[in-house]
Amino acid sequence: MSNPDWLERAALRAQRASWTLAYTFERYRQLEERTEAELARDLCCTREVLYWLCLCRKPEGPDFDTQVTAITERHEVNRKALVDVIRHVEIVEALSKQVTAANGEEPPLQMAARDRVPGEKTSP
């Protein structure tokens, strides 16, 4: 898969739209204080693949599994880690909205404590 000159710029531009994976990844990086390279490592993919993923619509709704499968069939990325990142951001965003609605305050950026990183083994 070729990596055109514009890929990184497009990925950066896509961060502004909340429906993109670029936005989700950026939120995750802010929340978990991960660099781009660390996020790529979490997802078991290269940085170029990360940029391609950024241009995707964030999987959601009843077709969530189908959309994730389509992404992982095209790109070499750890499926579980990708789902973890998406779910993590969704949960924090939902909590932030609830707190904001309840208090009429600004949403706290760091709501959830990090128990583990994507791909990390959990004890049985």
Partner: peptide
């Protein structure tokens, strides 16, 4: 349809170079 994750990526793949 807005329910296909790869459609937006394909728009970039298909149109970015020729329009540029």
């Amino acid at each position: 349809k807005k329910n296909e994750a790869l459609a937006s990526q394909d728009v970039f793949r298909v149109f970015m170079d020729p329009i540029t």
